[in-house]
């Protein structure tokens, strides 16, 4: 009987390669055979003889399998094609973004300086933040409006990378101004740039400021940022006594700045993207401001 049944199955299942379909057909035929045997009081051996033409069944099953396959292919094929197309677009967009924002240079720099930075002590940034707040609080009121027309002049009074609390708070008015918002910074930067143009700075000083901003802007490189840091030192050289006093902290300052920049990379990328169309100075100041 088993031989007969095996032979029947062999013919019925010939060319049916889907394992699920094969399993289902086998089960159906077996159940049917069982019912047939019980209903007609037959031995299974005889019941096999009552099964239909296996070739006809095979041809119907095959037709059905290919019909289902076609439909599945259309369904899953379209979905796969859609996912593939979207994937290509997404990758393309990512590559574009990567190129546009020059993210590769960030990661290269990050990699290059990582060890160096990690080997240096972390710089306590509390004073920087406070000093930066003092700076901005004097330039912007609580509504984010620029109140201090001589904001740029005051930059020179600060060394906001200075870790020691040397700022004379009595000298300034305080506002409850929490964190410098990008929009405020932008307005501030634009205003400062205008002031810079009209300021009494010598052409050389103006150039230095612009160069500074330019450098900061181009400090998608940490190296550039370090140069910028040195430039600041140069610009604020009129308070050279302070610089002299804190010259021993230069290494720490640099590392703190670098570390700060590293941490701020994503924000910098964001701000750069936002202010790409602005001039270098604005973008540079925003960079700077973000470091707070």
């Amino acid at each position: 009987m088993q031989n007969k049944l095996d032979k029947h199955f062999k013919i019925v299942l010939s060319g049916i390669w889907s394992p699920f379909f094969r399993k289902r057909i086998k089960r159906e035929i077996s159940d049917h055979l069982d019912d047939l045997a019980k209903e007609k009081n037959l031995e299974l051996t005889d019941a096999v003889n009552h099964l239909g033409d296996p070739e006809e069944a095979n041809s119907l099953y095959k037709k059905l399998m290919y019909q289902k396959l076609k439909s599945d292919f259309l369904f899953f094929g379209s979905i796969s094609a859609m996912i593939f197309t979207l994937g290509v677009f997404a990758i393309h967009e990512q590559v574009n973004k990567y190129t546009r924002l020059r993210l590769s240079s960030y990661s290269r720099i990050e990699k290059k300086y990582k060890q160096d930075i990690e080997s240096l002590n972390h710089f306590a940034r509390t004073s920087e933040t406070r000093n930066a707040q003092v700076l901005f609080q004097n330039a912007i009121d609580e509504n984010g409006r620029i109140v201090d027309q001589n904001f740029l002049d005051k930059i020179d009074d600060y060394d906001y990378w200075d870790s020691s609390p040397t700022i004379n708070k009595e000298k300034y008015n305080y506002y409850n101004f929490p964190i410098a918002h990008a929009g405020v910074l932008s307005r501030l930067a634009k205003h400062s740039f205008k002031n810079l143009k009209n300021s009494g700075y010598s052409e050389e000083a103006k150039k230095k400021h612009i160069k500074l901003a330019h450098l900061i802007y181009s400090t998608e490189t940490i190296a550039g940022y370090r140069i910028a840091n040195n430039m600041i030192k140069g610009i604020v050289s009129k308070v050279s006594t302070r610089l002299h006093l804190y010259s021993d902290t230069t290494a720490n300052r640099t590392s703190g700045t670098t570390m700060g920049l590293m941490n701020l990379m994503p924000s910098i990328v964001g701000i750069e993207k936002t202010y790409r169309s602005q001039n270098y100075y604005v973008a540079g100041l925003c960079h700077h401001a973000l470091d707070f």
């Binding site: 159940d31 099964l51 239909g52 119907l60 099953y61």
Partner: peptide, 27 residues
Amino acid sequence: YGYEIIKSLEDSSNGILKMKEGTLYPI
């Protein structure tokens, strides 16, 4: 169930329509 369908058709047709499992299940 499958066999019941075949049987019911056979009964309803007074034994004239004898459908085989190889025809019914693909349908």
